[in-house]
Design a protein around this nucleic acid. Structure first.
Length: 159
DNA sequence: TACATAAGAATAG
DNA sequence: CTATTCTTATGTA
């Protein structure tokens, strides 16, 4: 399916996304640079994460709830949305509207906006959020990925 | 303050 | 019923 770029602080995982191309990596590294976060290329530190993702892509109900995460970016609102999204159980889906409702918000669109900036793909299952009519509205990493992930959770994955 | 948004609702076909 | 357009609210820079 592709490679996944992971980044973590000493507090927890802070970034996870599919690697697009080299240029994309530059942007990410730049992102961390601006925050004075040094990147240490040490894959050994990601044993746990790797294992979790491995489970997930095997179709196991990995919720990542045990994985410590660290929001290096994000406004209070975004975090609320992310945390709420994270509560969605494996295999289930939610709508922007439902999230908004839980947060006592009327800003459906803002939910999507927050999710679009989700730095923790999969860990925060933004792919489980779809439009109120059941349509896949959008996805940062590409709708293909979203579709794939949803099928994966339905047990129809084909890698 | 102005811009952008992964939505929604409404309308037309 | 589906496709298309328009509207509105909210977050962010």
């Amino acid at each position: 399916m592709g490679k996944i770029f992971l980044a973590k602080t000493n507090k927890g995982l802070s970034f996870a996304a599919f690697v697009k191309d080299h240029n994309w990596l530059d942007e990410i590294t730049d992102f961390f640079k601006k925050r004075d976060i040094l990147l240490d290329h040490n894959e050994n530190k990601f044993r746990l994460e790797k294992n979790l993702f491995d489970n997930y892509f095997k179709g196991k109900k990995e919720s990542f709830h045990s994985l410590p995460i660290d929001f290096i970016s994000g406004t209070p609102f975004q975090r609320k949305v992310w945390l709420e999204t994270r509560k969605i159980p494996f295999g289930k889906i939610g709508t922007y509207k439902s999230i908004a409702h839980k947060l006592n918000h009327r800003g459906y669109r803002s939910i999507g906006q927050a999710l679009s900036r989700n730095p923790l793909l999969i860990v925060i299952p933004c792919h489980r959020i779809i439009g109120s009519d059941g349509s896949l509205t959008g996805f940062g990493a590409g709708l293909e990925v979203k579709e794939y992930l949803l099928r994966l959770e339905r047990g129809e994955a084909s890698a």
